[in-house]
Structure formats: C-alpha cells, structure tokens
Amino acid sequence: MTQVRRSDLTRNDRFGVVLVFFLTAGALGLGLLLRQGTYNQTWSYASREAGIEAEYPSTWLVDEEGPYVARIRDPKARPFKTQYIVQVVPAGGQTSVRNVLDNLTLRRSTDLAGYRVLNVEAINVGGATLTEMRFAFVDSDPNPFIQRLPVVVLGRDVVILDGDRAIIVTFMAQENKFDEELGDFQQFLSSLRY
C-alpha cells in the first residue's frame, strides 16, 4: 500500500526556506565577487630612478635588491614562484634588439640549468611592435639539503629599445601554469610606463 504524506510546512515556512536559499546563494556570489576582486586587484609599482611604472597583482612581493630594477613574485605559486622581472641595460646606437637578447642568452647559459631559447618573434603590444624571446630552463633549489624536485620553467623576454637604453621585461612561470598566468603578464606589460 502506498502512503501519501502531505507536507506539514506552512506558506511562511516555504517562504523562509526559499529566502534562506537565495540569501545563501547571494552570500556565496558576493564572496566569489569579493574573492575575484581581490585576485584581480592590482598595486602600483614605480621606480623613480629608472623612470618606470607598472601595475602588478596585489600581494605579490617586490624585490629591488638584485641585478634588476625590480623582480615581482607571487609568493603563493609553488613550487616555482611566478615572476616578472624588469631590467634596464645600456644600448648604444648600434645595439640591436638581437644583441640584447644574445647577451641575455650568454648570461643565462652559464647561470641556468638546461637553458634553451625556444623562439624569437615580433609581437604587438598596445599598437607597438616589440620583440619577444621565449625560453625554458630547469629550476632547482641550490641548497643540496633540500629535496626539491627540479621544475621546468617557461619564460618570455620582451625587449623595448628606449633611446640609449633597453628595457627588458621578463615573465617566468612553471611550465604547466604558464598559459594560465600569461594574461596577467600581458596586463602588466600593457600597464608599463617608461
């Protein structure tokens, strides 16, 4: 025998359930929006000495102590910290973009394990044609007592000749995150003022 049991909920009860459902969904949506807002939030970087400004993702770490104008890293990324590096090198009248890239390659071939240039091509950034070099290397922890697995890192250098100097903007990320992070780098590149 089949027994049919009607709900004991009143109309107000049902309204309450619906209200709770929508409030929960709304709160989740607001949370996601806030979270997305946090993720998309940018902070400003300015180097008065180099005359360079840019917008970079919030809560990334800025380092100005190395042989560069700035290195900006995502401390959360793991194991390799996704990073943007801005360098300025002198460029004479006879210096070509290719010369700048070749110098980078010479230096990296001794500093980085498994360094390899993938390709060099022209790209368009904000209507300007720039030269981009794609490269890869293997990153490992120099501390031999730390058992960190080496990771393959992909990178891009974008070279901007600016009078008697060349600005090199480098993006590096772990190989499996490179495409995912590329959009943020393009935003960083677009925001660059010099």
Binding site: W43, T59, W60, L61, V62, D63, E64, E65, R73, R78, P79, K81, D141, I146, Q147, R148, L149
Partner: peptide
C-alpha cells in the same frame, strides 16, 4: 610587500 623587509626566506622541498 617589499622583499627588502624580509630577514630570511625559504621555499619548501617535496617533503
């Protein structure tokens, strides 16, 4: 969020 304010930092290994 400037690294010059960091005294010491390290990245963990696979363990």
């Amino acid at each position: 969020w400037n690294e010059s304010e960091i005294l010491s930092q390290a990245i963990t290994d696979r363990g």
